[in-house]
Design a protein around this nucleic acid. Structure first.
Lengths: 221, 221
DNA sequence: ACAATTTGTTAGACTATTCTAACAAATAAT
DNA sequence: ATTATTTGTTAGAATAGTCTAACAAATTGT
C-alpha cells in the first residue's frame, strides 16, 4: 500500500500532467515543496513500484496503475470536500486543507457512506469532477469564460483554481457555481470582461479571473 | 507538534496508566506492537519533549502536559466515533478503526463542528467519556455489573472493553447502552449472573462479560 | 555555435522510527 | 538467598524521506 507521502506524489503527478501526461521533476518538486533530488529519488521509487514510467533526463509519466491510484485518492479528496460543504456546513474556501488530510484515510466504508449520504455527486464544491470507484473521470468539456463573447450567456460550472484567495474573491462578489453570467462587453486591450449576473448590474472581471472561471456557454435568447 | 507516532504513544500511555499513573515499558511495547527497545527509545524522546517523566528502570508517567495532549487526541477519537454512529449511521462495532485514523487530523474546526452538530455529547458510543476542550475528563464512577446483587437493577452505561468481538456479542444479545437489567441471581461458583432485560426473560452472563459491563446500580422499586 | 541558464542527477549526510542481539537490573520462585 | 524469569537497556543496523553540494545534461538566447 502506498504511504501518505507516495500518495501525495501521485496526486501531484496527476494534477501537473500536461496534455501528453508528462511532468517535469522540477515542477513536481516545486508543487510538493521539496528539493529536486528528493523528488527525483521518489520518482525512482514510484518507478520501482510500477506507478510511473521514467527514464533519466526525460519527463515522468504515470502508468495506468499509477493514474488509477491517483484518481482514487482524488476521489476521496473531492467526496470529502463535498461532504464538508453539504453535510457539515463548511464554506467552499475552508474544505481543502481538511480534505488534504482526510484523503489519506483507508476506509472504503467511510467514503462509500459519504457518497451515499450525498446521493452520489459527480462534482465537488468547486465544480471539479469526482472520479468514480474505478478511477474514471468524466470530461465535462467546460470552457474558460474568456472564450465567451458579448451577447452570450454563461453558467459558472467549475473553477480552474480553488485557492482560498480566489474562493474568497468569488464570495465577496457573490459568484457561486450555477451563477448565470451575461457577457456585456470584452475589453480588447486587457482582455477584461464586463458582465452582469443576479442582482449585480455590472461587474468587471480581469483576464486573470475570467481564465479561471469554467463555464457552459449559451447564445442568449 | 507531535507526530502521528508520538500521538499513538501518548494515547497508549494514557490508556495503560494504572491508578498511580504508571506504565511499564513492556506493556507499552505490547500495546503498540513494537519491540521493547523501540518503546524505550520513544519514551526517552517523549521525555526530552516534556511529555513524560522517566528514569531508567522505573515505570513511565505522563506529565500534566502529556496527559492533556493525550486527552485531546482521545477527545478527537471519541467525537469521531460518536459522529460516525449518530450522523453517518455506522454501527458501534465499526467505528474504532476509522476513528483511529481520523483522530490524527489537525483541524480544530472539523471537530468543533462535529461536536456542535451532535449537541456536545459527553460520552462516545461505548459510554466512554469525551474529554472537554481543556482535556478534562468527567469521572462517572460507574460500577462493574459484577458488583450488583440479586434484586437490584442496573442501567448499562458504558463498556470496559470496546473490541469488535465484544460489541458483536452485545449486538447478538440486543444489549445496548441504556438497557435496564434486572439481576435475578448470581452463581457463586463461577460468578456468572442471570438477568432479564427488555423482552429477554432470562439470560446468563459470564463473569468475563459482567466485568466489562459498566452500570449504574439501583435498588429495585 | 557557443555561452548562459535551467533542469536533472549523484553522492553523502541527517532524522524518525523501527529492528535484532547482547547484556543488565529487577522481580519471582524455589 | 540464590537461581530463574521477566523486564529494561545499549549498541548497532535498516528503511523512508528529507537535505546540501557538486556536477552533468538539456534548453535558451543571442
Amino acid at each position: 500500500m502506498a504511504s501518505q507521502t507516495e500518495e501525495n506524489y501521485l496526486k501531484a503527478l496527476f494534477n501537473l500532467a500536461n496534455p501528453e501526461g508528462e511532468i517535469n521533476i522540477s515542477d513536481l518538486a516545486q508543487q510538493l515543496e521539496v528539493s529536486m533530488p528528493t523528488a527525483n529519488s521518489m520518482v525512482k521509487n514510484l518507478q520501482k513500484r510500477g506507478l510511473v514510467q521514467y527514464e533519466k533526463y526525460k519527463p515522468v509519466k504515470l502508468t495506468s496503475v499509477g493514474k488509477k491510484e491517483a484518481a482514487l485518492i482524488i476521489r476521496k479528496h473531492r467526496l470529502t470536500e463535498m461532504f464538508l460543504v453539504n453535510k457539515m456546513g463548511f464554506g467552499w474556501e475552508e474544505v481543502h486543507e481538511i480534505a488534504e488530510q482526510v484523503e489519506h484515510i483507508h476506509s472504503p466504508k467511510l467514503f462509500e457512506r459519504m457518497d451515499e449520504m450525498m446521493g452520489f455527486p459527480t462534482v465537488d464544491p468547486h465544480g471539479s469532477p469526482i472520479p468514480d470507484k474505478q478511477g474514471r473521470i468524466q470530461n465535462l468539456q467546460l470552457k474558460s469564460l474568456i472564450e465567451a463573447n458579448p451577447g452570450q450567456e454563461a453558467v459558472l460550472s467549475a473553477l480552474a483554481d480553488s485557492s482560498t484567495e480566489f474562493l474568497q474573491y468569488l464570495n465577496s462578489r457573490d459568484l457561486k457555481l450555477g451563477t448565470e453570467l451575461k457577457i456585456l462587453s470584452k475589453e480588447p486591450f486587457d482582455q477584461s470582461m464586463i458582465v452582469s449576473y443576479g442582482s449585480v448590474e455590472k461587474e468587471t472581471l480581469s483576464q486573470k479571473v475570467c481564465e479561471k472561471l469554467l463555464v457552459k456557454i449559451f447564445e442568449a435568447n
